[in-house]
């Protein structure tokens, strides 16, 4: 698999735990506490096929961040990881190919399914195999 898995979450322990788990799965992971930091880092031109996005962020909400990232990097796939009980996927995000299966509710008892989803999105061929 090539490229980084991008994690944007303002909760440090969530960030760290996801990063740790995915790294243990052999994935390259970068994690930022805000969308702004992530965008800044992406300007360096790194390859980043998958992003795990929190919804409540200090600078903007997750939906807006996804729209912005999608604008800049149309190839990027998104997984949503939210603590909000009332979150529902906006319609425009669905047109970007997102669906309810991409939404993960906090707290995650088991990070295994999320990791599998990341793998599948990052490398479709590999996932299919």
């Amino acid at each position: 698999m090539t490229g980084w898995v991008l994690i944007v979450d303002d909760e440090e322990m969530i960030r760290e735990n996801l990063k740790a788990y995915l790294e243990d799965e052999g994935l390259g992971v970068v994690a930022f506490e805000s969308a702004t930091h992530a965008l800044f880092w992406l300007q360096a031109g790194v390859s980043c096929p998958v992003c795990i996005m929190d919804m409540r962020l200090p600078d903007m909400d997750g939906n807006t961040a996804i729209r912005a990232l999608h604008e800049l990097y149309p190839e990027m796939k998104f997984l949503i990881h939210t603590g909000s009980s009332s979150y529902s996927l906006p319609e425009d995000l669905r047109t970007m190919g997102l669906d309810d299966s991409r939404v993960y509710r906090k707290p995650l008892e088991d990070m295994g399914p999320l990791a599998a989803a990341v793998r599948a999105l990052a490398d479709p061929q590999e996932a299919r195999l």
Partner: peptide, 21 residues
């Protein structure tokens, strides 16, 4: 919910990572 789910996530994910590691 949001305020509790985040720390719960940290607890659960942390536990999983610890056991794994």
């Amino acid at each position: 919910a949001h305020e509790i789910n985040n720390p719960l996530g940290a607890i659960l994910q942390g536990s999983q990572n610890i056991l794994r590691r």
